[in-house]
Simulated scan of single mutants.
Amino acid sequence: MVKEGKINEAYKKLQDGWLENGDKVPPPEFAKLAAEYSECPSGKKGGDLGWFPRGKMAGPFQDVAFATPIGATSAPFKSTHGYHIILCEGRKN
């Protein structure tokens, strides 16, 4: 979770480093950015929220999380808790 003024700054770093070249953001690099920008307690863990099933996260967060392909990074989006960028590392069936 990031405030509106910082989400674009964080996303620009992802774009400049990887996304504009069509590369996937390496999880360790995403974790560094999350630790720097996130205001959520998960920021201290590099933004790692662990595994969660459908129905656990609210509205747009869940929608974006389950729509983001494995290995891909979402565009910035807003939820009731602030602004987010998601890196989807995997899914369990």
Rank of each mutant, 00 (worst) to 15 (best):
K6I: 07
D48K: 03
F30I: 01
S38P: 03
A31E: 11
I85R: 00
N21A: 14
R91P: 03
G5R: 14
F30K: 01
E9A: 10
P69S: 00
P27W: 02
I7M: 13
D63I: 00
A35N: 13
D23L: 14
Y11H: 01
K13E: 08
C88K: 15
I85P: 00
D16W: 04
D16V: 07
C88T: 15
E29H: 14
R91C: 11
G90L: 05
K24S: 11
P69G: 00
W18L: 03
G5T: 11
G43M: 06
L33S: 01
A35E: 14
P53C: 04
F61R: 04
F77M: 06
M1L: 13
E9C: 06
T80D: 13
M57T: 05
K12M: 07
G90C: 02
W18I: 01
G17L: 10
L87M: 02
A31P: 04
W51V: 10
G17M: 08
K32C: 04
K12R: 13
Y83K: 05
A67Y: 01
Y37V: 04
L33E: 00
P76V: 09
K92G: 08
A34W: 02
K78Y: 02
K56Q: 14
F61E: 08
C88R: 15
K3G: 10
R91W: 12
R54T: 08
P28A: 04
T68P: 06
Y37I: 12
G47N: 01
P41S: 05
